[in-house]
Design a protein around this nucleic acid. Structure first.
Lengths: 228, 228
DNA sequence: AGTGAATCTTGATGCAGGTCAATATCCCGT
DNA sequence: ACGGGATATTGACCTGCATCAAGATTCACT
């Protein structure tokens, strides 16, 4: 759990970690709050959202077990987003200074933090790609594919914890559009959808729609060709 | 430069860093290439782009001096984007394994990497926000404001290294739309624009347009109100 | 089981921004 | 200073998705 540390060091760390539990809809912190702590998600999922003064909201990330939140403020003063539990959540809270000391003491932990951060960055950049250049059906495909667990049976019922509105807030769409696209997918037997779950029926089709693998036939948006 | 290390360690590190220089438009690596190295940007700027098979392109990040690229692949196999120099660039190349060893040897360096990564994550999440919920003029405002240097004179001429097309590829718009919005801003004396540079004339206006501070008057998109 | 509130679906309509097209301007080499 | 290719601007039009508006389902209580 804490590689490369003496027993004493482990004790010191444990003292500084505050283990906390949250229920669905509970808010860990709000955008703009002074950033006192950061959190390591032990279990459950939560959504990180940023909003504009007029109420428009964007889900910036869905955090899953193992990820860190609030580390964006490592050099900042305020949380750049709100964090709200989607499920029951267990998280460890730690102050920036304490984390800094732990990282200085244990390169192994630092390395793990770096791995986590680099994955989060990858995830964020992937969402940027989706938001910037995909059409509504492509975005939804992308989202649906992201629900498939790495190590899990192919086409089981996947639990869907996000409401239509939340999916929309993640993909930069409206709930109506998400609803329409999913209804369309269901009509085409690409997915089966029930209450609170989804079943992927035609993964290949989704992957093609998503990545637009071969058929450069009907590009939704204009393809900007490279220069020179 | 390398805090907390013995002279010998510093030598070891230097041996493993490969300093390289690139000219504008030169490509450091391409999306999908096997990820052999990662890079630390010493000076200059470059764009990281991801594209779809039909040619649509998205600028995922503009990397500036101090940032790392390719660390997204710390646990991955292939670069998730291409990297192309926008200016003359000096970068240090290092293999993942070597980096790992260095990080294990020097917590101080690991800490710096963590700080850099957390800033990059913050930057990425900020772009997600822009892409997901802003209108074209808001996106352009946001972009223009991001050009203003932290420590620099207020309203000097800011060099603009990105073409209209590149700005468009970053903001999820088309070059025509960017052109129109900027022409409109210039007409309203919000900015002055010449070849290869921009002058911010009315920063306050941009900040209001960007953040939609007070006036909840004419929201471009529907504001989704919170739940419960 | 019944009632109300939230969520989801579906339809009709409108508009922001994409698309297509035609100049205009810049840049660079000769 | 001339010519040609890249880049930028501008106009006219069109479409994908937002918006507005009803219903339909589902869920949580009592």
């Amino acid at each position: 759990m804490y590689p490369g540390l003496t027993k004493e060091q482990v004790c010191q760390i444990r003292e500084r970690l505050i283990r906390e539990m949250y229920e669905p809809h509970e808010v860990l912190f709000r955008e703009g709050d002074p950033a006192a702590f950061l959190f390591a998600l032990r279990s459950g999922q939560l959504k990180l959202t940023s909003s504009m003064p007029d109420g428009r909201q964007q889900i910036v990330r869905i955090a899953v077990a193992g990820q860190l939140l609030g580390i964006e403020t490592f050099k900042g003063q305020r949380y750049p987003f709100s964090a709200e539990a989607l499920t029951d959540v267990v998280a460890c809270k730690i102050s920036h200074d304490d984390l800094r000391q732990i990282l200085e003491a244990s390169p192994a932990i630092a390395l793990r933090v770096i791995e986590t951060l680099s994955q989060e960055l990858d995830q964020a950049e992937s969402l940027i790609r989706d938001l910037g250049l995909k059409t509504a059906p492509e975005k939804v495909s992308s989202f649906l594919l992201s629900l498939i667990p790495q190590r899990g049976d192919p086409s089981a019922e996947l639990p869907l914890r996000l409401s239509r509105r939340e999916i929309a807030e993640m993909l930069g769409l409206t709930e109506e559009t998400v609803s329409r696209v999913m209804a369309d997918f269901a009509r085409k037997k690409i997915i089966g959808s029930g209450k609170g779950y989804i079943r992927i029926l035609d993964r290949k089709w989704l992957e093609e729609t998503n990545g637009v693998k071969n058929k450069a036939s009907s590009a939704g948006r204009r393809a900007l060709s490279g220069h020179s």
